[in-house]
Nucleic acid binder design. Structure first.
Lengths: 195, 195
DNA sequence: GGAGTTCTGTACCGATCACTCCAGAAAGAC
DNA sequence: GTCTTTCTGGAGTGATCGGTACAGAACTCC
């Protein structure tokens, strides 16, 4: 019927996401994107509309992957709930102090765009809420198992915990040493256990 | 000897800072800056060099003001130390959920530039460290007064506390409700008191 | 082998970017 | 007043921005 596409849309979105992650939205030009994806402008615009829409696709992709990843990392038996939270926190500290200093695409987007772009803000907010819900569930498990005192609302505990993780991401971007980020992550976990 | 300047440099820097705060570095054009400051391009370049240098001036200005402000807010007798920390945390939560959603210029800059701009990263890091030092001092006061248990290192406590404040700023940008940010701020203070 | 349709790469668009240049204005020195 | 010097504002710079137009390529269907 017609000429078929020569590219895989998900591969292209992944390449664009990578590029946006490196330099942010505004500082990534269409020229950068054509180089990163290997596509010409015609194909890019034909498939995705414009830069903004391509970015939204990449961001949605990232958020879905992040939500999926945290669910994988935190779900399990009540027994190891606190240990899973600890491992997650350590992972955030490690990622945030990675040499490339890209940080988290969601956090970067939130700070760069959420104030001016309602759609980006909505995705950011709902993703953060989803992450927090996963953490709250895991905290509740730890409460059931006796590792976290039961008198506090797990949602409140999860809210502070996620906020601290966002802070670790920002401090990592500023260049805070990995050891210090680890200390903060450990303290965030410890705070859960003392009510 | 020669024609004198018709503008006050500090006023101009303040106007530029305001503009940068609203839209960030990349998204603020020189045209925006001439409008915001009232100066022509000739004067702007003559006095500050280029956009990057003007931004650095504005950022330095902001960081100095922020450091000064937190010192003012936290210094006082041992007696009210914990209350001052609480007031500070509440203030961060309120500012972060302000309607204009500008957030904190330092946090915005960190996320936008620190990964690519060594000078901006250095200013951000040292400012965050200065803020943390002020908080650590105030925590130590609260320990002396008995409001915060003495067994923990005040610097560690201050590190988590500041990280959580950074997180509140990010979540505020995403659109998190003020009440929730307040809950997080309260929990961050509460965490200090339980060791 | 057309016909029909969609995809692909590129040339091109006006707008805007950061930045430079320069003629004239405004001051003190004499 | 005149000279010298610096400041001022706007016109003009090439480069780059996001986005469009379009000719030809690649495919299926008949």
């Amino acid at each position: 019927m017609a000429r078929p596409r020569e590219f895989d849309e998900t591969v292209v979105v992944a390449a664009a996401r990578e590029r946006f992650h490196e330099t942010g939205y505004a500082a990534t030009s269409l020229d950068d994107l054509t180089k990163a994806t290997g596509l010409g402008k015609g194909s890019l615009y034909g498939a995705f509309g414009d830069k903004r829409h391509l970015f939204q696709r990449a961001l949605d992709d990232y958020c879905a992957a992040a939500t999926e990843a945290i669910a994988q990392a935190l779900r399990g038996p009540d027994d190891g709930a606190l240990a899973r939270l600890q491992a997650y926190a350590t992972g955030v500290a490690n990622d945030s102090s990675a040499r490339d200093r890209r940080g988290c695409l969601l956090a970067n987007t939130t700070v760069e765009l959420a104030g001016r772009d309602a759609e980006a803000a909505a995705v950011a907010l709902s993703t953060y809420e989803a992450l927090e819900a996963e953490i709250a569930a895991c905290v509740a498990q730890a409460q059931r198992h006796g590792d976290v005192p039961g008198q506090s609302d797990p949602h409140d505990l999860a809210a502070v915990f996620t906020a601290t993780m966002r802070g670790v991401e920002v401090l990592g971007k500023a260049g805070t040493a990995r050891r210090k980020l680890r200390t903060i992550a450990d303290a965030a976990v410890h705070a859960l256990t003392v009510g």
